[in-house]
Design a protein around this nucleic acid. Structure first.
Lengths: 235, 235
DNA sequence: CGTTGACAATTGGTCTGACAACCAGGTAAC
DNA sequence: GTTACCTGGTTGTCAGACCAATTGTCAACG
């Protein structure tokens, strides 16, 4: 039995053009034929062709300039194939937790080198607030998040900050659960203080490994909790 | 002088919808309003809306089903953000290079623990091809990219893989320039071999620090080149 | 001779309306 | 109870027209 995939026309056109680019029929940097000519050549309407071109542009394979033409971008063929095959799986919580550790440990190291007095003050304030909340019987979830956000700002790298915040938001449920585990909130904040101490003394190595130990718990929790969930890729 | 960016309407619509998805206004898994309703809501024609939707679909943010509707994919917003960044202006090259190092070093360490025989074979093949290209007078740019993509796949973490590919694509120009610098292509590949050796022996520490040394050059180049350039996003 | 400015041609960008393909759900016939 | 069909809604595709940006031409001007 054949798969008989119900592939849409504009997808087919996009693949057609994409393969023509890969095969070198359209050299990088040069312009494609005008849309109206390509329509006739491919036997499709202009709407369909444009949807194909727009989707290729979204993948960075071509670039469209009004009044000038559609130009083939210089993109390595290896990366091109990786992009075309990007309609696949859905990452697991464990993957997200691991990526978050990579980002935050790096951010911690840079923060230890680039932090200013204001960063230190704000982070200390957040940690003191978390201490207070814990003593009052809370888990300090808000303050925990605040500390990590302040740390990401202190590294003075917008990419790390943005990625860290996004990944942090995704692991929020896990982190909250971790803090709820008996006796986890207090040691968690002690680890925070260790990290901050390393940043304060401008010792990237120490601060980074302290953060690594701190985040390791989240990874282990994610592994236990979401270990080998089939990750129902939906529909 | 103002930038006076000449942004296209369908790009603006795509960002609008994309941000609505990120902000949670459209919950993952559910369907967007029908195209005609969205047209009226946004005040644009259906062609424009469809071009926006198709570009979002190409990025894996939504999925279109004929006769049923347009559905929001259940994709972690971190990847979403990285993908949307493509539609926006580009961040600092130095920031990107640093973030890339964080991601790739982590990926290298995990790859050293999780790689299988096939990963090793493919990476060795890529490096041999790069050696050959260099001996032939080339710089091995394609093979360099290929190696890093294979490594990201070997770490068995989809989040790290996708983020690494995104950041790698952004630093493509810098890397190519680095390889063109006199005598840089050959040492670069020797560092590749060191990384692969560490992965092969399942020594995360060694492989990771080898990768760190390897990528350090790119960071320094980015710092020299784009040190405090206003990043005019040159068209 | 060089520069400027208007103008036309070319190209991508957007809108409109129509119809086809497809899907879900209800309804009538068996 | 099951099947077949109808119907309304949705995405997919097409055609044509017009808008907007870019480029090249060429005459008028200094």
């Amino acid at each position: 039995m054949r798969e008989m995939r119900n592939v849409q026309l504009y997808e087919a056109v996009a693949r057609e053009i994409g393969e023509a680019v890969v095969s070198g029929r359209f050299t990088a940097g040069s312009a494609l034929p005008p849309e109206r000519a390509l329509c006739e050549q491919l036997g499709v309407g202009r709407s369909t062709l444009r949807e194909a071109l727009v989707s290729l542009a979204a993948l960075g394979i071509v670039r469209m300039h009004q009044g000038r033409g559609v130009f083939v971008q210089q993109v390595p063929s290896a990366l091109l194939q990786a992009r075309l095959a990007r309609l696949d799986s859905q990452p697991s919580m464990l993957d997200v937790a691991e990526a978050r550790m990579a980002i935050e440990v790096a951010a911690t190291e840079y923060a230890a080198m680039r932090r200013d007095h204001r960063d230190i003050e704000q982070m200390e304030e957040a940690l003191r607030a978390m201490d207070a909340d814990i003593r009052a019987g809370g888990v300090g979830g808000e303050e925990d998040t605040q500390f990590h956000i302040l740390l990401l700002a202190a590294c003075k790298n917008d990419v790390l900050r943005q990625l860290g915040e996004e990944l942090g938001a995704l692991t929020h449920r896990i982190r909250h659960r971790a803090l709820l585990v008996e006796g986890r909130a207090r040691p968690a904040n002690e680890e925070h203080w260790e990290v901050l101490d390393g940043i304060k003394r401008q010792e990237p190595e120490r601060a980074g490994s302290a953060m690594r130990r701190h985040l390791q718990y989240g990874i282990e929790l994610a592994a236990r909790e979401f270990g080998e969930t089939p990750t129902t890729a939906g529909s």
